[in-house]
Design a protein around this nucleic acid. Structure first.
Lengths: 213, 213, 213, 213
DNA sequence: AATGAATGAGCGTTCATTCAT
DNA sequence: AATGAATGAACGCTCATTCAT
């Protein structure tokens, strides 16, 4: 994250790409592409550099090591997502609708960038240690958001009280996650966001208090 | 030529040597242990061999390459699981109960062997290609089993017809899967099977036809 | 020092060199040659391997890392020297003669293997840390030997008591050491052992009690 | 063109830029500090630049390459030392006293700047080639000074004629050198100059003609 | 079938040096 | 004169795989 002060601005003399330091971003994008294609451990830093159009050594001007590239990519994606999610959820009040909105965002975000989706769904879990650390640092916030919505719903009497909020959040996230993985692995092209309603429907029905008999 | 009868069945993952041999199994167990501990890419074949008590070269008498060890381990775990699942499900008729029974088995199987769980939940996803191939070859059967139960439920009028059986299966599997991942990553020790009822409850309620108003 | 059990014996089928594990020694010799030529930091392991006639990776079968090669070479040279020194000194009683004998051995040992001499005189001192550790582990024994001879001389009244044994040992070693360095750096070829008498003469005179006036 | 007058004298080790510049000196000091701490090969130019408070590239305005920094640092230290030595020796006539004075200066100079001492005693010897070139260019003068004193002593009949002046100089220098190395490596703090008398005593006694019996 | 020494391609990373500004 | 981002060659080391025994 030690983003070197970009030497100023893009000059004219540079063929094709802008000179200076959207290089950070170029490396990040290249990394996601190469990792998505080959997996983290089969993604040589040299290939990432090549795709980013920089020298091997340049990568290390922007990232401490290979792992940090992946970390940075994931962190950014998640931070962006959470920020957007929190913002959009402010305009929705009903817990059911909030879960629905969140699922749409989840799907839209990943559908918009399939390579990123591959990385998040698959490469993220290369090793227990990596995932564990990651989960604790970033994913936990997403979970907390989900749990807070469910809790709110329970307090309002919209969701059943006899469902552990933690378990419900797990099921909700797990269902979304599996849908994405399924989509990522599928050869057939289909709209992921279009699935949101069905999924949320199923889960919300599972959680809601019966409109009593 | 004192070739000791190389015992029968050879699957794709198993060349020249005996699949049933005791060494075969020892290598498999060692592989799961080492991979669970360090991750697939940080699991040297030499360490697997060491733990299995065989020479490095011996591993290659039983497996074509490193990837095939992981493949074989997973294949066996899944085959065993599916076999047992099919058997146990024969004694249950009600679709809801069948889903419940399946979830219990899912959790029990993995809770009984945490190392295997780590491998299945995490190491499985080293690369999109790997996972894709794996999914298509083995996981698809599990999915088909789940889907057939749901379909049966729909046909009997126990589950709503307006839920895509495919999506429902995804949600069901995703929820279970996330519960397991959560359990694997958790430091606190708790009973995974004990969670089965709550999870199935949530999902079954989401799928069932309302006991009409 | 983890010398792999050499797989048995030299077979006939091997062209030129013996098959198996004087490889350890070959690598050591190659290392000394390459380091003497280029200096430790400019001595690629790959060149050492090449000169030893083994693959790069093989080096690491015999040595934990590059530093350990240098360490092993030096340790062996010093151990051999000290062993021989102690043995030969048993046959000499007079302290003055013992110092003389030791100096001869010192010079002979290094003159017999100029490359080793280069390594010991020069490469040994690449870094303060390296040298410090080395001195404390190996050189200290040599110093102790020298000091014990001087002390003995003092006790017998052959050497002056008003000279710190430690300082005298430093001067003695320093003089020998400088002679060797001088010889190593000199382009002109001359006999190092031939210098021994003159050097020892100077130092012994400096230490001896005057045959009283 | 606002070229600030690039001040006069340029030696071999100093290209384009000013040798007398303040930055030049800052780089030199930084280099000695960093090299003393980490060794020449583990002393990144970037760290030297950082410590000197200049940009990486600036270093190359003052020095042709990394080696030249070390060269220049050593050259300056030796030049300064020799200049001072020659001056101080003008006030001493007796060869024995001159050797004593020289040893004191030797020890004082290095004791006054431990980092420089580390560099001179240890880092100087990174490679036979480096040391050889260095010896021939700078150290030789020091040796000549020592030899001239000894020769003078011999001519005056103070020192024995049967000692090669060259060997005697080697022993003298070697003894001093070893004392310094010993001091540099020692953890215990002690006064190096305090050792001068004892060392010189030993050597001078070794060289002097007996006050005849 | 079993061994394990040997291989060598491949990788992550460092750092002296350059050069456009 | 001064900068510091960029370069890319070079290196130490690992490890999947082979093969002579």
């Amino acid at each position: 994250m030690k983003r070197q002060a970009p030497p100023a601005a893009e000059s004219s003399a540079t063929p094709g790409a802008a000179r200076s330091s959207e290089k950070y971003q170029r490396i990040l994008d290249a990394a996601i592409a190469v990792i998505a294609e080959n997996g983290y451990f089969n993604a040589p830093v040299s290939r990432i550099a090549e795709l980013a159009g920089v020298a091997d050594g340049t990568v290390y001007l922007y990232f401490k090591n290979k792992e940090q590239i992946l970390m940075a990519a994931i962190e950014k994606a998640l931070t962006t997502f959470l920020e957007r999610a929190r913002q959009e959820l402010q305009t929705v009040d009903d817990p059911k609708q909030r879960l629905r909105r969140l699922a749409c965002l989840h799907f839209e975000s990943l559908a918009a960038n399939r390579e990123l989706a591959v990385v998040l769904q698959i490469e993220l879990r290369q090793s227990a240690k990596f995932l564990a650390e990651f989960s604790h640092r970033y994913l936990v916030e997403y979970f907390n958001l989900i749990r807070s919505i469910i809790r709110e719903g329970q307090e309002r009497g919209v969701f059943r009280q006899d469902v552990s909020e933690k378990i419900a959040a797990n099921c909700y996230f797990g269902a979304l996650d599996e849908m994405v993985t399924s989509w990522v692995l599928s050869e057939r092209e289909y709209s992921l966001p279009a699935m949101a309603d069905a999924v949320v429907d199923l889960l919300v029905r599972g959680m809601e208090t019966r409109p009593d008999v």
